[in-house]
């Protein structure tokens, strides 16, 4: 039983990080960045490329590389269409997503590749009588530390106050001297760092990378932010955690004959949540149009 709780918590916290990255950019841009999944994918390939190095270097390279790709993504793809209508931005995000997937296929091939990063993390460890792979407590610890740092930055630093203000009322924030470019770049880079963290944890768990590895996470992140209430960062994190935990627990409790329909049950849960709270769990007026 405890083992399943660990599974659920580890998956839930991974989903929470993924969802936070989506919500952060949505907050200041009112854009669901579907190319976020490819940031994660880029992170996976950086791990593959640096696989021989000591692990702190792998982590540092991944964080830096994905942060830079996110930065370039904003500058090259999204800044020129920032004033365009939301549909244009959305299509841009699909285009960037497909472009990056194809670059990955072109360079590394279509087939998934095995990565040995963190293979020692799959060893089981005994926690309170339950036997769980070390990667699960590690995931919990990494996510908890990242979230604490994230909350600290958002609450205590000048940039954090500016980002929260811009997420609620972008125009008023500008009227108070907050640079639109700065907060948007910051949101993209931070979402890149979160994608890198998710990529590291994901690769350590699954042991493989592929050009399409970002597709499922971005869908999860999107659904989680909808559950949480678009625009609410806490909502996204909670929504991600709930989605991950429910997925894992359904895997356990569903009878064998229907377990292959697990995702149908997961999305029924999503629909039920949205029926009860159509604006999401943590809806606030922050979800207003940016214009």
């Amino acid at each position: 039983m405890l083992q399943h709780i660990f599974d659920a918590a580890a998956t839930g916290s991974l989903y929470a990080v993924i969802a936070l990255g989506i919500a952060l950019v949505f907050g200041v841009m009112r854009l669901v960045n579907f190319a976020y999944g490819e940031l994660l994918m880029v992170g996976g390939y950086v791990v593959l490329l640096t696989a021989g190095l000591p692990w702190p270097l792998i982590v540092a390279c991944t964080l830096a590389a994905v942060g830079i790709v996110a930065f370039l993504m904003e500058r090259i793809a999204f800044r020129p269409v920032r004033e365009a209508d939301p549909t244009t931005m959305l299509i841009t995000s699909f285009a960037v997503s497909i472009l990056l997937q194809n670059i990955a296929v072109w360079i590394a091939g279509r087939r998934p590749k095995g990565v040995s990063f963190g293979s020692s993390l799959s060893e089981p460890v005994d926690i309170a009588g339950a036997s769980v792979p070390i990667v699960e407590p590690v995931t919990l610890g990494v996510v908890a530390a990242s979230l604490i740092l994230f909350v600290f930055i958002m609450r205590k630093t000048e940039l954090g106050v500016q980002m929260r203000a811009a997420a609620e009322d972008f125009r008023m924030a500008r009227l108070m001297g907050v640079r639109a470019d700065s907060v948007i770049v910051a949101a993209f880079v931070a979402s890149g760092v979160l994608a890198a963290i998710a990529a590291l944890l994901l690769v350590a768990t699954t042991g493989s990378v592929s050009p399409y590895m970002g597709l499922q996470p971005v869908l999860i992140g999107f659904v989680a932010t909808v559950i949480g209430g678009m625009g609410s960062l806490i909502g996204a994190a909670v929504g991600g955690f709930a989605l991950g935990a429910v997925t894992v627990l359904l895997q356990v409790v569903l009878p064998e004959s229907v377990v292959s329909y697990r995702d149908a049950f997961v999305f029924s849960f999503v629909i039920l949540v949205l029926l009860a709270w159509p604006q999401g769990l943590f809806a606030n007026r922050a979800a207003e149009e940016r214009v």
Partner: peptide
């Protein structure tokens, strides 16, 4: 500086954080 129609305070922020944002400027 503008006090706009409808005020547009940052409702999800505390009073202190609203003022802090102005102080930064």
């Amino acid at each position: 500086a503008i006090v706009p129609e409808g005020r547009h305070n940052f409702l999800s922020l505390t009073v202190a954080d609203n003022l802090r944002l102005a102080q930064i400027a």
